[in-house]
């Protein structure tokens, strides 16, 4: 399979801080790679280098075989960029934004007009075509931003935290648009802080922390390495927590832990068989249970597992969520 994006030993220094410390990536054409990591991991820096906006201080990066520094102009003909903060012009209408990009990507006037209409239609923005993006909702703005990056039919698309701050409905709409694009063979590099987003869109995931790649694989491989799903069991009476733990251990299930603060028992489960056993054990114990549900590991849990440390600033998010 052809390689669409490749970086080798990418280094970027900002003052004293080493933002990227030797990043190697390889994205086969037509696939979606998600860069997962907390704020400051270096995800955006990777995207900015690949989008020819920032020069690397070391290593090299190519897009469809073209060097991002020496052949920046060729790279720009292949890429579309949807930035972390929607990079649309607030002072001209949605339609004018798309028409402008069309003209700048060398579409003839008539074609640029048609393309702007077409994309607005596709993203459900036709009614807002003549309005300034200032009056758009966050979701509409992101959609317009994505539409703008698709005007030139890019072969490689970068999405830098495309759904941060969006409500679930807008997020789903944006995901659907990205999937439609991927179906046409576009290669996508997606950065996100959400495991869920990576799972929804990506073929493979690269986890970054402190400017380094700390893990790579498919979402399933990654999840298996992190320990699959986590079962949360909440007994009706907090006094029963220890009993629940005993019941699970009695059924031969190891690894359960007690979170008295949250009033629940957590247990990593590797597969459906373990889940069935756990439910059976709880049923025969006849303890009153208020809630039982499975969780995909949150990014915090992935990080705990991969680095053995809580990512900076994320605090007790995992606990609070449970």
């Amino acid at each position: 399979m052809d390689t669409a994006i490749e970086t080798v030993g990418l280094v970027k220094q900002f003052g004293d801080k080493r933002a990227l410390d030797g990043v190697d990536l390889k994205v086969p054409a037509g696939t979606v790679l998600s860069l997962l990591g907390p704020n400051g991991a270096g995800k955006t820096t990777v995207v900015r280098i690949l989008a020819t906006l920032t020069r690397p201080d070391g290593g090299r990066a190519t897009v469809c075989g073209n060097d991002v520094v020496r052949e920046a102009d060729l790279v720009r003909r292949l890429i579309g960029l949807t930035g972390q903060y929607a990079s649309v012009d607030e002072n001209i209408s949605g339609w004018e934004n798309l028409y402008l990009v069309g003209r700048l990507t060398d579409l003839p006037r008539r074609r640029a007009r048609a393309r702007a209409d077409e994309l607005l239609e596709q993203f459900g923005l036709t009614a807002a075509a003549k309005q300034l993006p200032r009056s758009y909702s966050g979701g509409m703005r992101r959609k317009l931003d994505l539409a703008a990056s698709l005007v030139g039919e890019p072969r490689v698309l970068y999405l830098d935290e495309p759904t941060t701050g969006l409500d679930p409905r807008s997020r789903n709409a944006l995901w659907a648009a990205v999937r439609a694009r991927v179906a046409t063979g576009t290669t996508v590099l997606l950065t996100t802080q959400y495991m869920e987003e990576a799972e929804a869109l990506a073929d493979s995931v690269v986890v970054m922390d402190n400017g380094r790649v700390i893990e790579a694989g498919t979402t399933d491989q990654l999840r298996a390495r992190v320990g699959g799903k986590v079962l949360h069991i909440r007994p009706t009476r907090a006094a029963d927590l220890a009993q629940v733990l005993r019941a699970l251990a009695g059924a031969g299930l190891a690894g359960a832990s007690l979170d008295a603060g949250a009033g629940l028992v957590r247990m990593p489960i590797a597969g459906d068989a373990e889940l069935t056993t756990a439910v059976g054990a709880l049923a025969s114990s006849a303890l009153p249970i208020a809630g039982i549900d499975t969780h995909v590991p949150s990014l915090d849990e992935v990080f705990l597992s991969l680095t053995g440390a809580q990512p900076a600033g994320s605090g007790d998010a995992a606990q609070v969520r449970a």
């Binding site: 720009r76 903060y85 990079s87 012009d89 607030e90």
Partner: peptide
């Protein structure tokens, strides 16, 4: 604003 990022990722002369 982010609009400059858009311009600079397009295949146009920087002076345009």
């Amino acid at each position: 604003s982010g609009v400059m990022d858009r311009f600079r990722s397009l295949p146009i002369a920087r002076s345009a």
